[in-house]
Computed example of a mutant assay.
Amino acid sequence: MHEVILAAVTDGSAISHTVVVICGNLLLAVLAVKGLQLSFNEDFGKKISFLGGAVFCAVFVWIPDQAKGLVTDLAKVISS
Rank of each mutant, 00 (worst) to 15 (best):
F44V: 14
V33M: 06
L6D: 13
V21P: 01
A58N: 01
V55M: 06
I48K: 11
N41S: 15
I15A: 11
L6P: 05
E42A: 15
F40D: 04
H17V: 07
V19K: 12
A8E: 15
I5E: 13
D73H: 08
T10A: 09
V19Q: 11
D65S: 12
S13W: 06
I48S: 05
L27W: 02
D43W: 04
S13I: 09
V59G: 01
I63M: 13
P64L: 02
V21H: 07
L51H: 03
E42R: 15
L6H: 14
Q66Y: 14
G12L: 03
S39Q: 12
Q66A: 14
V59C: 04
L51R: 08
L74V: 08
D65T: 11
T72Q: 10
I5G: 04
F50K: 00
N41P: 00
G53D: 03
Q37Y: 06
G45P: 00
W62N: 10
K34G: 01
Q37D: 07
V33Y: 08
S79Q: 10
I15T: 11
K47Q: 07
G52N: 05
A14Q: 14
N41F: 05
L38E: 01
A75Y: 11
M1R: 09
V9A: 12
V33S: 05
V77A: 07
N41K: 07
L51A: 13
I5H: 12
V33W: 07
S16T: 13
V19M: 08
A8H: 14
T72N: 10
V55R: 01
F56Y: 09
V77Y: 06
S79G: 07
M1F: 12
C23E: 13
N41A: 12
M1D: 13
A67C: 06
A54R: 00
S80A: 08
L38T: 01
L38V: 00
L31M: 12
G52A: 05
S79W: 04
V21N: 05
P64I: 02
F50N: 01
V4R: 14
S79H: 08
A58S: 09
E42P: 04
L27K: 00
T10Y: 07
L74D: 01
G12H: 04
K46H: 09
E42K: 15
V55F: 06
I78P: 00
I78C: 03
D43E: 10
A75W: 09
L31K: 02
T10C: 07
I63E: 10
K34M: 03
F44S: 11
D65R: 08
T72V: 10
K47Y: 02
F60C: 05
A75E: 13
